[in-house]
Design a protein around this nucleic acid. Structure first.
Length: 925
RNA sequence: GGGUGUUUAGCUCAGUUGGUAGAGCGGCAGCCUUACAAGCUGUAGGUCGCAGGUUCGACCCCUGCAACACCCACCA
């Protein structure tokens, strides 16, 4: 066996083997268990967040599979309408082709071509992470089967009156020229101005102060061209005389009314608000209340249209703003201009400023869907882990508004609607069905709807649409509802909530029983990883390693803001001066699990990956040790179990119980910790060391040696199985060597059963005895360490005091103890015996002494004792003050009080002993 | 303007019904001890954000405050 493990040598071949053997497919036996991967965008590549979540899902799936469940882990990709269209469009543009040139059908064909060529990348990356996905069931949201389900859902909702088409003010992206939903708008504070305009009063009206104009303030000067009223608060005495009067709207030849509406805050600005119902959501509501005309002044790409005065037509909104301000200035109608911070809405894909625009769109009437979705979580049919995310969900669901599902795009599920010459809407699965359903003659000309559905409409159907719905398939019956959804909190609204609504509506059951919300993966400084910041890490670069030069190139190429490249390069050189070494998939996966503590984001720290890589190496070497000591040995025949064997079995039993509790409660961090701690600090640090004396002792009985060898193998084999869900590669590679020696047959650990605590014996005696042994060994090591005694130097250990238990334990462990602490002699002094000058440690009631005999520096030992005494005095003082508190003695439970008294006595005893010892040393010096 | 989360060792984080504060990394000292220097041994380091309260007893429960992070929201 190689002296350290090389992940690359084993990972890819193992994965291929697993996949080819069909181990990822459900066995067909056992209780169904199902996880659906949140489908990543087909345009995407695997990022930290995916790798993190997939690791957790894979851990769950592998665990369930080993537990004997009929486990299905299904994956696929999302057609990601806007992103994909943008990507392919950019590629075409790069070749001098515009999508308008080639037309819709040819463009869509190009997207499919792109998908065939490049869409499988992320799936390959998922394989590298070891994800045991049933690839035979991989789905794409534009697949024919899934598309049929999407059309079916749309038609049913329409027929039930839950989808409608209407002219509404929607968030419009003028760059992409499509509507987007509320959620796709990101508002951020930006610096702007507040312009104060004078609007002249018509018909000789005057304000209370006698002025012939009123002042309105706006952050959007250009929209004044579409104003259809000025509003004041009904109780605002300053303007009460003006309500019902009119103003002459500057730059236009229109007069608009002054209206009263409680929407106006009299304390803000002048207390007068210009109302532009076609370009502002609040103004839209005001306009509806007052039956105002709505003048849309923008084209779909946010240029001024023909509804505005001729002078402004054709200008884009920024130019129009300048022109309006300039023109108002020249006629003296600017009161003032102030700096003003405002929230600017931008499209999450295009980053363009979003324009509220009146357009015809398709909507889902959401209330009827939202109510059962809220109730399902309230009832506990779906549980969020951590629980607090339920509040976030409820808050959003309670204020939810009708969902705009149409997009003016080419790539996506085409809305199954048709129009006749009069514009009447017909909805059905296809045109032939439309004619049947609505009794339309063949000669009635029908025009198909151009719009597509927003991507989240289809992904909301992911759990049931991929299992065959609307057919009642066997898979749907077996695996739905799925067991758990693992995802980030960033898509609770986009996806989780909508899945719950759609699934309840169409299936009458929840899509999943649990939602495990993970934190977001951030960089080591806690910053969000992003392309623009250039602080992202590719999980596969952590797996395979990457040179500094390649990492810089990767981070700086194709930047939206190329001027950032220098700063990114500098930071990269600072953070990764030597690039990133290769850590292997298992180390990364183990780290992800260890990072996954509840409800908090993850700071991705390479030092921790390194730690877990070292852990993998530790496992490797432990296995090497076990194999060296068992391969070729005669393992069959009568065997005897030692105390150490019993101890490690009992400890393993405890570990398995804790591991099970951890994974069942989605505490992957605790799972990783108990495995790490057991493997390293119990199995390697102590058990392997405890076996050495026996294995190397020529005089040890064959039965004892055989028992030890079997125990070494048995515990290691079970440990590997316990760890397999987290670190699948190394555990399988090692298991294949270890299992046969255990008499266990099998191709791979993947299909071996998960180890059961119940198969091991709880052994309190062995645990206590070995704990005692550890205490004594540690005490001797402390003396060695602090007295600077050479590690190789053998010592004499004198014992004094203690009880029957101590004597019993010494008898049980003496030979082990001698070997572990490098003792040539252990001698028990009678209570009255005067010990020679010695360094002392106290373990419980027991005095441990290493005679000085020229080895030990008396002054150093005195100083050490002083420290020991001081520490104990401090603790004693605390306990005594507690015991001196009448309230404590009277009110605390009797066992707590008794325990404190016991401890006080023990500490006092230790102090006495140490003080006596110190005095003895004093006299020596 | 509402809401949520976080605040524990130099750093990153655990701390499961209130009863002796833990780990990893890093630091320091010593070790090539026949699995492992990606290692071994020892060791230092914390008034648990601040101020109150409840309690015999608070990292833990309650109130207030502060800082940081995130989410939602129509203030022109």
């Amino acid at each position: 066996m190689e002296s350290s493990f090389d992940p690359h040598a084993l990972e890819q071949s193992l994965y291929r083997e697993w996949e080819q053997a069909g181990y990822f497919e459900p066995t067909g036996n056992g209780k169904p268990y199902c996880i659906m991967i949140p489908p990543p965008n087909v345009t995407g590549s695997l990022h930290m967040g995916h790798a993190f979540q997939h690791t957790l899902m894979d851990t769950l799936i592998r665990y369930r599979r080993m537990k004997g469940d009929n486990a299905l882990w299904q994956a696929g990709t999302d057609h990601a309408g806007i992103s994909t269209q943008m990507l392919v469009e950019r590629q075409l543009n790069g070749r001098g082709i515009s999508k308008a040139d080639i037309g819709r059908d040819a463009f869509v064909e190009k997207v499919w071509e792109w998908k065939a060529a490049s869409g499988g990348r992320i799936s390959e990356q998922m394989r590298r992470m070891g994800s045991s996905i049933d690839w035979s069931r991989e789905r794409f949201t534009m697949d024919e089967g899934f598309s049929r389900a999407v059309r079916e859902a749309f038609v049913r909702l329409y027929d039930e009156g839950l989808i409608y088409r209407g002219r509404r003010l929607v968030n419009w992206d003028p760059q992409l020229k499509t509507a987007i939903s509320d959620l796709e708008v990101e508002s951020n504070e930006e610096q702007g101005s507040l312009w104060h305009f004078r609007y002249p009063l018509a018909d000789g009206a005057r304000t209370a102060e006698g002025r012939d104009f009123i002042v309105v303030a706006t952050t959007r000067p250009e929209t004044m061209l579409g104003d259809t009223a000025v509003a004041v608060h009904p109780d605002d005495a300053r303007y009460s005389g003006l309500v019902g009067k009119r103003v002459r709207l500057p730059l236009t030849d229109r007069e608009i009314p002054i209206i009263a509406d409680t929407y106006v805050d009299p304390a803000f600005g002048s207390g007068c608000v210009k109302i532009t119902p076609a370009h502002d959501f609040n103004d839209y509501a005001v306009g509806q209340r007052h039956d105002l005309p709505m003048i849309n002044i923008f084209t779909v790409d946010a240029h001024i249209n023909d509804a505005a005065p001729a002078a402004y037509r054709g200008l884009d909104r920024a130019e129009a703003r300048k022109r309006v301000v300039a023109d108002l200035t020249s006629v003296g109608l600017i009161e003032k201009i102030e700096d003003h911070k405002l929230m600017v809405p931008r499209g999450d894909r295009s980053d363009a400023i979003i324009e509220p625009l009146l357009t015809d769109q398709w909507f889902v009437a959401i209330d009827a869907l939202a109510k059962p979705a809220i109730e399902a979580v309230q009832r506990g049919d779906i549980e969020f882990v951590p629980k607090q995310y339920e509040n976030l969900y409820f808050a959003w669901m309670r204020d939810i508004r009708d969902w705009c599902i149409s997009r003016q795009q080419w790539w996506g599920h085409r809305i199954p609607a048709w129009y006749d010459a009069e514009g009447t809407i017909y909805v059905a699965r296809d045109e032939a069905e439309v004619r049947r359903k609505y009794n339309l003659a063949d000669n009635v000309a029908l025009r198909a709807e151009e719009d597509v559905l927003e991507t989240w409409f289809s992904s909301a159907m992911w759990t049931f649409g991929t299992l065959g719905w609307p057919e009642k398939t066997r898979e749907l019956e077996m695996y739905h509802p799925t067991d758990v959804l693992v995802t980030g909190h960033d898509i609770i609204f986009f996806w989780v909530a909508r899945m719950i609504m759609m699934t309840l509506h169409f299936m009458g059951e929840v899509p999943f029983r649990k939602v495990h919300i993970t934190g977001l993966v951030r960089d080591a400084e806690g910053q969000k990883m992003s392309k623009t910041r250039g602080n992202g890490l590719d999980p596969l670069d952590v797996v395979d390693g990457i040179s500094l030069t390649d990492l810089i190139t990767k981070r700086t190429e194709g930047l939206m803001q190329p001027q950032m490249a220098k700063a990114i390069e500098k930071a990269t050189r600072r953070d990764f001066p030597d690039g990133i070494p290769s850590y292997g998939t298992d180390a990364l996966r183990f780290a992800y699990c260890a990072f996954a503590s509840t409800g908090r984001d993850v700071r991705f720290d390479l030092k921790r990956i390194e730690g877990y890589r070292n852990f993998c190496n530790k496992l490797w070497n432990a296995t090497k040790f076990v194999l060296m000591n068992t391969e070729g040995a005669n393992l069959s025949g009568p065997a005897e179990e030692t105390l150490a064997d019993r101890w490690i079995g009992s400890r393993l039993r405890r570990m398995l119980n804790e591991a099970e509790r951890a994974i069942e409660s989605y505490r992957f961090d605790l799972l990783a910790n108990v495995i790490y701690d057991f493997a390293w600090h119990e199995y390697c640090d102590w058990y392997l060391e405890l076996t050495k004396p026996l294995l190397w002792d020529e005089g040890a009985s064959a039965e004892v040696q055989r028992g030890t060898r079997r125990s070494l193998l048995k515990v290691l084999e079970m440990l590997l199985r316990a760890a397999h869900p987290i670190i699948p590669f190394i555990t399988d590679a090692l298991w294949r060597r270890v299992a046969p020696l255990n008499g266990i047959a099998g191709e791979t650990i993947m299909v071996a059963p998960y180890p059961e605590a119940a198969d091991l014996t709880n052994d309190p005696f062995a645990e206590a005895a070995i704990e005692w042994l550890k205490g004594v060994v540690l005490a001797v090591r402390t003396i060695r360490g602090e007295m600077n005694i050479k590690p190789g130097q053998t010592l004499t250990l004198l014992l004094q005091g203690g009880g029957n238990a101590d004597r019993e334990r010494l008898t049980a462990t003496e030979s082990l103890l001698k070997r572990m602490a490098k003792l040539e002699r252990v001698e028990w002094l009678a209570d009255g015996d005067e010990p020679p000058p010695a360094a002392m440690q106290i373990v419980g009631e027991l005095k441990l002494m290493v005679p000085l005999a020229g080895l030990i520096d008396v002054a150093a030992e005195r100083a050490r004792l002083e420290k020991e005494i001081a520490r104990r005095r401090q603790e004693l003082a605390r306990i005594e003050s507690k015991l001196g508190n009448a309230g404590f003695v009277a009110k605390a439970p009797a066992d707590v009080v008794a325990k404190e008294r016991e401890r006080a006595a023990e500490i006092q005893n230790a102090i006495d002993t140490l003080t006596t010892q110190q005095a003895a040393l004093e006299s020596l010096a």
